[in-house]
């Protein structure tokens, strides 16, 4: 038995070392760094307790980033998940050109977010862009979509939804195809309406998939900021600054290590809280087959 234990640990070792070195270790050092000042030149970091957190509480950009990220998540997550379900239901039935339609939904997923951002940047361009073009047919005027505080964040949300919905569709499609067909026959015999069947049978059976998709959607809402870097750099006036983008700015544009570390700890805390909510609260209410 002791020999097997040793063998197991040897098999685990490379993966465990890499995992701890580049996930747990940086998480730990970041927490420690958040209690110190940023080293400047020859001045070493100084322990300041929770001062960095106190500063953060009075940092208006932090609150803007938090608010933006909340709005961004509240719109992108439901929109992409519901669209994904609609898409899956659509291509799960026999219809002309089904393969083409499915391909159309899924293709944005294969593009790098950077490429997506470049393409959409062009659409949002005042005058020349696709959106102003379409508006001009209806007599609309020029609009600076990314330069206007009111439309910049919604513009980012649209990009994210376009990119993600097709990805989540795949998982719903897999779940729909795994559903036993006799359920549908039963419901038809009982004279159940389609809407009723959808609400009482399809939705509950899809709950495990929904949980999986939700976890991914939540993670992406906080992880994916590539389009912000390319399209707006957080502007105008921080209207599109998301948390991770602010971390990137603090860490690699202002080189403010203390601020970046403190922000990272807040983001980690937030992700942890969301994970607990999803698995602890929502997870209990999901019926697994």
């Amino acid at each position: 038995m002791r020999k097997e234990s040793l063998q197991a640990w040897l098999l685990l070792l490379p993966a465990l070392v890499l995992l701890v070195a580049f996930t747990h270790w940086p998480a730990a050092t970041t927490i420690i760094d958040s209690f110190y000042t940023t080293p400047k030149g020859s001045r070493p970091p100084r322990f300041v307790g929770i001062e960095n957190y106190a500063d953060l509480m009075t940092d208006p950009v932090f609150w803007t980033a938090l608010r933006n990220n909340a709005i961004y998540a509240v719109w992108t997550i439901p929109a992409s998940v519901i669209l994904a379900l609609v898409m899956a239901l659509a291509v799960n039935t026999a219809m002309p050109g089904r393969a083409l339609v499915r391909m159309a939904y899924f293709t944005p997923t294969m593009l790098p977010m950077i490429a997506v951002a470049n393409i959409w940047l062009f659409f949002y361009t005042p005058d020349y862009g696709l959106f102003d073009h379409i508006l001009s047919w209806f007599g609309g005027g020029r609009h600076n979509w990314l330069g206007d505080r009111a439309t910049a964040l919604p513009a980012m949300i649209a990009v994210a939804v376009w990119k993600e919905a097709g990805f989540f569709m795949i998982f719903y499609l897999a779940a729909l195809q795994a559903m036993p067909p006799d359920l549908k026959e039963c419901a038809a015999l009982e004279g159940s309406s389609r809407w009723n069947f959808f609400r009482r049978v399809t939705i509950p059976l899809l709950m495990p998939t929904t949980l999986f998709v939700l976890v991914n959607a939540v993670i992406n809402a906080f992880r994916l900021v590539d389009h912000v870097v390319v399209m707006t750099r957080g502007g105008p006036d921080n209207a599109t600054t998301l948390l991770l983008y602010y971390i990137y700015e603090a860490g690699f544009r202002f080189w403010d290590q203390a601020l970046a570390a403190t922000l990272t700890v807040v983001l980690l805390g937030l992700l942890g809280l969301l994970a607990w909510l999803q698995f602890g609260v929502l997870g209990k209410r999901v019926h697994y087959r």
């Binding site: 270790w25 998480a27 860490g251 970046a260």
Partner: peptide, 14 residues
């Protein structure tokens, strides 16, 4: 849940 993508600052230092 806590992917390396989020730990830019710590990993850069390493």
């Amino acid at each position: 849940m806590i992917m390396p993508d989020v730990l830019l600052v710590g990993n850069y230092r390493s």
